[in-house]
């Protein structure tokens, strides 16, 4: 039987030491919801697993200086989805976390793991994009902070060096005037990998008028992308259902999707537009209500 060494460090220093010791033979395990599948499919065959579940420095969700919120890499999707802090100041992230996989996966899977896997279909990532989060990375060369968009470099490719781990992610609190939505289209309602996902954050000046518009699209490019064309079109424009529909149709310009078993390129392009439109409609009707 192949033996796999499992190390359970209790500090960041110990973790980094282990990473240095094992080098390329190490794999960091957090919730294991991606890694265990990769091990089973023999896509990865590490000699050592470094379980960071007991490292205090990667745990917790707390308010940080400069009006920021910090979320430790080991925070599970379930913890984030039910966190009162997150629900209050970044409901879009709570909503995105609530749509990951299934209850079992949300109880094990972590936000740090979701980022480290660097899938363009990662459910938490579009939300982190529109929150303009930054990723805290730690390694033998010390701590560094990378803007979320620079962290992702391609499918399964991130700025993380083999001897580094994600410490946490932080973002600035959004004021009460911010509204948001997260919409994920999957092949079913749970345990679904997204065909397309859309995250939206906007500062609502008055019903239908947004400044500081941020839109991110998932599963339509090698990484999650910001939809700049759409953002520019929405910003400071008075939206009604008609203009929302028209503007949403521009979303395909921000996508370069592929065809796979979940959906064709063409469908993905259309869905990026339509999910955005669907979300804007819900915002408009919600704005009218208040």
């Amino acid at each position: 039987m192949t033996r796999l060494h499992v190390a359970i460090p209790t500090s960041i220093d110990e973790t980094l030491g282990l990473l240095e010791k094992w080098g390329h033979d190490a794999a960091v395990i957090a919730g294991g919801t991606d890694l265990v599948v990769e091990l089973k499919d023999k896509l990865k065959s590490p000699k050592a697993l470094i379980d960071i579940g007991r490292v205090p420095e990667v745990r917790g969700i707390r308010e940080a200086e400069g009006n920021h919120v910090w979320i430790g890499a080991m925070s599970t999707h379930a913890e984030i989805a039910s966190s009162t802090v997150v629900k209050e100041i970044a409901p879009i992230l709570a909503k995105a976390c609530a749509q990951v996989g299934s209850p079992q996966i949300r109880n094990r899977g972590t936000i740090g793991g979701n980022m480290s896997t660097a899938s363009p279909a990662g459910d938490t990532i579009p939300a982190l994009y529109v929150l303009e989060a930054s990723v805290e990375i730690i390694g033998p060369r010390g701590k560094r902070t990378v803007p979320i968009e620079s962290f992702f470099q391609g499918p399964k490719k991130s700025a993380l060096a083999p001897d580094e781990i994600v410490l946490g992610v932080k973002f600035q609190k959004l004021g009460k005037e911010y509204v948001s939505f997260f919409r994920k289209l999957g092949q079913r309602k749970s345990l679904a990998i997204s065909i397309v996902s859309v995250a939206f954050v906007g500062k609502c000046q008055k019903p239908g008028l947004f400044t500081d518009v941020r839109v991110a699209l998932g599963s339509v490019a090698p990484t999650v992308v910001r939809a700049r064309t759409v953002e520019n079109a929405i910003r400071e424009k008075q939206l009604d259902p008609k203009t929302a529909e028209y503007i949403s149709k521009l979303a395909f310009r921000d996508c370069v999707p592929i065809t796979d078993v979940r959906g064709s390129k063409g469908y993905r392009e259309q869905m990026a537009c339509n999910l955005l439109y669907e979300g804007l409609l819900s915002l408009l009707s919600c704005c009218e209500a208040c």
């Binding site: 299934s102 092949q187 079913r188 309602k189 749970s190 345990l191 679904a192 990998i193 078993v261 979940r262």
Partner: peptide, 16 residues
């Protein structure tokens, strides 16, 4: 076979 497990072979879940 392209749909080799339950992540791509889409069975309804309790939510569906």
């Amino acid at each position: 076979t392209l749909t080799r497990n339950f992540s791509t072979y889409i069975l309804p879940t309790s939510l569906d």
